[in-house]
Design a binder for these strands. Structure first.
Lengths: 241, 241
DNA sequence: CGAAGAATTGACCGCATTCAAATGCGGTGG
DNA sequence: CCACCGCATTTGAATGCGGTCAATTCTTCG
C-alpha cells in the first residue's frame, strides 16, 4: 500500500535524496521496509500545501509516508525559519501541550499517516517506532543548531548539499573514493526555502551556489539538479571535516 | 531523596530560573513531584565537569535530577555551539546509534540519574516520562533554531533573558502586569557560555547586555544577577511578540 | 595587595544583508 | 515557432551588523 516508487521517480527523475551527518537521512521515496499500522488514516497533499499551522490545536501524530514535509516557524514581522526537512519515516505533531509549535507544509506531493493520540498510547509498537525516529530527528536538530549558530554561509550551503548525498559525510562515511566519485542530487527546494532553512537570505544562498560552481566543486544546468564531481572536495568545505 | 532545595538555594541565592517560549522551562532546583525509578544509579558532578564527550559510546539515558547541564557540539577548528541548556527533569543521551552526537557537561553542581537502555525498554512508566520530556525538549530546540537562524543579537539576548523568567513570554503569558512587574533572574552561565548558546561572540553578548542596561531595560551589579523592571518591555525586544 | 581570569569597551574590518537591476526559465497564446 | 509574461534566480553596489583584535576595567581569590 505504500509503494509508489514509479510515481516518485517521475518527480525526482530518479535522483537520490538522503540526509547525513550524525547518521540521519531523508528520503522522499516511499519505503517498503516499515510495517505501518494497517488502518491508519492516510492523508494526501499536493506540493506546497499546508498540513498544520503554527498554533493549531492538534493532538495527532503525523508520519510521512511519501514525499517531503517542511516544518517552520514564523516571527510576527514575517521572518521565517524552516526548522526541519522531513522525509519518509519522519514524524511530527508532537507538541506537548496540544498546540502545534510549528507549521507544516508539504515540499513535494506527499502522503502522511495520521495517528490519534490515544491510538499512539495504546499501540506499543507504533509508539516505539515514533520514539526511535524522534531520537534520530533530535540528532538532526542538534546538527542543524551547530550549522545555524556557528557555520559560515559557504559552509552552510556545502553542508546542505552534502546532506543530500546518501551515505557520505557522516560517521559512517566511506571516505575518499578517488576517481569516479561522482554524484548527482535533487535539491527539491527553491532557493528561498534553502535560505529559510539555512538561516540566510536568498541572495546569499545564490551567491554560495555560484561560487561553488565557479570553483568547479559542483555543476548544474537546472538549478535544482546538482552534480558533484568530487564528494570529498565538497565535504571539506562543510566545516565539519 | 531528591530534595536539596536548601543547598541549591545556597548556590542560586533563591533566584528563580525558568525557560519559556512555547511553554518550556528549566529549573535547576530539585523537584519533588516526579516519582523517579527507585534504584537508578545517581551520579554526582561538580560544576563544569564533563559527563560525556561527543563521540563517546553510550547507550545509557540520563535524566537531570538536580542542577543544570549543557549539551554542546564542536567543530574541528574549535568553534563550539551549546545545543541545549538542561534543567531538572530534562533527559539526554538518546543518540540513535549508541554514539553520543553531543558532549554534555555540568553547568552547576549536578546530580544525574543514569538508566541503562534495557531498563528503559523494560519500564513503561519510565519510558513514557522520557518520551514526554523529549517532546518538550524538541519544542525548545525548535524555538532555538528560530533564534539562531533569524534573530538579531539584541533579540537573542533579550529572548535568552526572557527564558529565565518563569511563566512569562510564552503562550501562557499572563500579559502586562503594570507596576510592580519586577523580576530578578540568575543567569548561571558565563558570557562565553551564553555566546556559545546564542551563536554569538562574547563581545557581542557583552555589548547587548550593556545596551539593555543603558536603556534601563535591565539592571545588574553582579553580571550574573539581572533584575528586570518591566518584563513586558524586555519581552517586546525578543522579536517574538 | 597582587595575580589571574572574566567582562567591558573601543576601533576597525569583513561577511552577509539590503536594495536594485539584469538575466534566465517555464508556460501561454498568437 | 516565437513573442511575451510572470516568476525565480543571479549579479552588482552599498550598507551595516556582528566579528576580530586589542586595551582597559572589574571580580574573585589567595
Amino acid at each position: 500500500m505504500d509503494a509508489m516508487i514509479s510515481r516518485q521517480d517521475a518527480e525526482t527523475g530518479g535522483f537520490s535524496n538522503t540526509k547525513f551527518d550524525a547518521g540521519w537521512n531523508i528520503s522522499f521515496e516511499a519505503d517498503h521496509d516499515v510495517t505501518r499500522v494497517a488502518d491508519a488514516r492516510i492523508a494526501s497533499y499536493p506540493a506546497r500545501s499546508q498540513i498544520v499551522d503554527e498554533g493549531d490545536a492538534t493532538t495527532n501524530v503525523y508520519e510521512v509516508v511519501e514525499g517531503g514535509v517542511l516544518l517552520f516557524k514564523l516571527l510576527p514581522d514575517g521572518r521565517r525559519q524552516i526548522i526541519e526537512v522531513l522525509g519518509v519515516g519522519d514524524v511530527f505533531g508532537l507538541a506537548p501541550n496540544g498546540i502545534s509549535d510549528v507549521g507544516a507544509e508539504t515540499l513535494t506531493k506527499a502522503r502522511v499517516a495520521v495517528y490519534e493520540k490515544r491510538r499512539v498510547d495504546a499501540d506499543a509498537e507504533l509508539r516505539d517506532r515514533i520514539f526511535s525516529r524522534l531520537r534520530s530527528q533530535l540528532c538532526a536538530l542538534h546538527d542543524h543548531a551547530l550549522l545555524l549558530g556557528r557555520k559560515s554561509a559557504q559552509e552552510r550551503v556545502a553542508t546542505f548539499i552534502m546532506r543530500l548525498v546518501p551515505g557520505r559525510g557522516g560517521h559512517a562515511c566511506r571516505g575518499p573514493l578517488g576517481a569516479g566519485d561522482d554524484t548527482r542530487v535533487d535539491l527539491a527546494m527553491t532557493r528561498q526555502e534553502i535560505a529559510d532553512y539555512l538561516g540566510l537570505t536568498i541572495e546569499t544562498v545564490s551567491r554560495a551556489f555560484s561560487a561553488l560552481r565557479r570553483a568547479g566543486t559542483i555543476a548544474y544546468d537546472r538549478q535544482d539538479r546538482v552534480s558533484i564531481p568530487s564528494v570529498c572536495k565538497l565535504c571539506r568545505l562543510t566545516g565539519s571535516h
